[in-house]
Structure formats: C-alpha cells, structure tokens
Amino acid sequence: MTDNSENRPLALIIDDASTVRMYHRKLVEDQGWTVLEAENGMEALERFGDRPVHLMLVDVNMPIMDGYSFIAAARATPGLAHVPAVMISTESQLIDRDKAYAAGANHYLVKPALPPELSQLLTLLSPEVSA
C-alpha cells in the first residue's frame, strides 16, 4: 500500500489529552484526512511546518498556550491565518463560545464531538470535494 498522505487534506488536532487526540484522529482519518497532533498551542505553532493545513481542531484548556491564545496567534501567522478553526471544549456556556469567536474561531463544538457533527464539518471543509 502506498502512502498518499501528501494528497489528502491535513487537520491539525491540538489537545493536551492523548485520549481526545486519538478519538479525533480516528474520526478525521476515517474521513480521508491526514492528521498532525500537538499537546498545546505553542507546540502546534512550532510543528505545523510548510505543509498547508486545511483545518484546526482546538481544545480550550491546555497548558503553556491555551486554545484562545493559539487561535489568536494562528490568525497572525502566515499559513494559518485563514485556516478554519473549530474550538472543541467541555466549556459549554455562551461566554465560552463568544470568547472562541472573538479569538478567531470559525465554529464551536462541545466535547465529546459527535461523529456526525465532525463528519459533516470535514465534508464541508475538504478541499478535495469535487462537484
């Protein structure tokens, strides 16, 4: 089997919980995407590299750099500034959503992200969907 990961869209999953990253990785890869993971916002900024990222799934509460700070920094980073960012958090109050959107998030999901919700987002955001 050949590795065609270079031809698939890339999702950046940022969460300090390895079990959550594994859960999201499975859902995203099942939709034909490649995944890059990071444990916090700072690691994500350091690891995204030169490869175009097509989607960022971002937790709120993380050490070193939280999700709000990461999204704000990503919006100021060439290569990430216009990438769709989905905040996924256990925080479910309206103020949490407002803070995410103020930081630059495009969408907000409450954990656990349900497979149909994430699948629909991935389908809508996939750069490889043909007419």
Rank of each mutant, 00 (worst) to 15 (best):
Arg75Asp: 12
Ile64Gln: 11
Pro127Trp: 12
Ser18Glu: 14
Gly41Phe: 03
Val129Pro: 05
Tyr23Arg: 04
Gly49Gln: 09
Ile13Asn: 07
Leu122Gln: 08
Ile95Pro: 02
Ala100Ser: 12
Thr90Ile: 15
Glu46Met: 12
Asp3His: 15
Glu117His: 12
Pro52Thr: 08
Asp96Ala: 15
Asp16Leu: 13
Tyr68Cys: 03
Leu12Val: 07
Phe70Ser: 01
His24Ile: 01
Pro9His: 06
Ala74Glu: 02
Asp98Trp: 00
Ala76Thr: 02
Ala131Met: 15
Pro127Ser: 11
Asn61Val: 01
Ala73Glu: 01
Gly67Ser: 07
His54Ser: 15
Pro63Asn: 01
Ala85His: 03
Gln120Asn: 11
Glu43Phe: 13
Pro127Phe: 10
Leu55Pro: 01
Phe70Tyr: 08
Ile71Thr: 14
Pro127Arg: 09
Ala17Lys: 09
Asp50Met: 07
Pro84Gly: 03
Ala113Ser: 05
Ala81Glu: 05
Ile95Gln: 01
Leu57His: 11
Phe70Asn: 00
Trp33Pro: 10
Met62Cys: 04
Asp30His: 05
Arg51Val: 07
Thr77Lys: 00
Thr34Trp: 04
Gly67Asn: 04
Pro9Gly: 06
Leu121Glu: 09
Val28Leu: 05
Val35Asn: 11
Glu6Tyr: 10
Val28Ile: 04
Ile14Trp: 13
Asn4Phe: 13
Ala100Ile: 06
Asn106Lys: 10
Gly104His: 05
Arg75Gly: 11
Arg25Cys: 04
Tyr68Phe: 07
Gln93Gly: 15
Thr123Phe: 14
Gly79Ser: 09
Ser119Arg: 12
Thr77Cys: 02
Leu118Pro: 07
Lys26Met: 12
Gly104Leu: 04
Ile95Met: 08
Val129Asp: 08
Asp66Lys: 04
Asp15Ala: 08
Ala103Gln: 01
Ala38Val: 04
Ala85Met: 07
Ala73Gly: 00
Pro112Glu: 07
Ala72Ile: 08
Ile14Leu: 14
Tyr108Cys: 02
Glu128Gln: 14
Ala113Phe: 09
Ala44Asn: 02
Ser126Phe: 01
Thr2Lys: 07
Asp59Met: 06
Gly49Thr: 03
Met42Val: 05
Ala11Trp: 00
Glu117Met: 14
Glu6His: 13
Thr90Asp: 13
Arg51Ile: 04
Met56Cys: 15
Pro78Arg: 02
Asn4Pro: 05
Thr19Val: 14
Met56Lys: 01
Pro52Asn: 06
Glu39Met: 03
Lys99Arg: 15
Tyr108Val: 03
Leu118Trp: 08
Lys99Gln: 03
Ser18Asp: 14
Asp30Glu: 08
Asp3Ala: 12
Leu109Phe: 14
Leu27Asn: 13
Val110Glu: 09
Ser119Thr: 09
Ser126Met: 04
Ile13Tyr: 05
Ser130Pro: 06
Val58Arg: 00
Asp50Val: 08
Ser126Val: 04
Pro112Tyr: 06
Met87Cys: 14
Arg25Ile: 07
Ala103Val: 00
Leu45Gln: 09
Asn40Arg: 06
Val86Leu: 13
Gln31Ile: 09
Pro127Val: 10
Ser69Cys: 05
Ala38Asp: 03
Ala105Leu: 11
Leu94Ile: 15
Gln31Leu: 11
Asn61Ile: 01
Gly49Glu: 07
Leu55Ser: 02
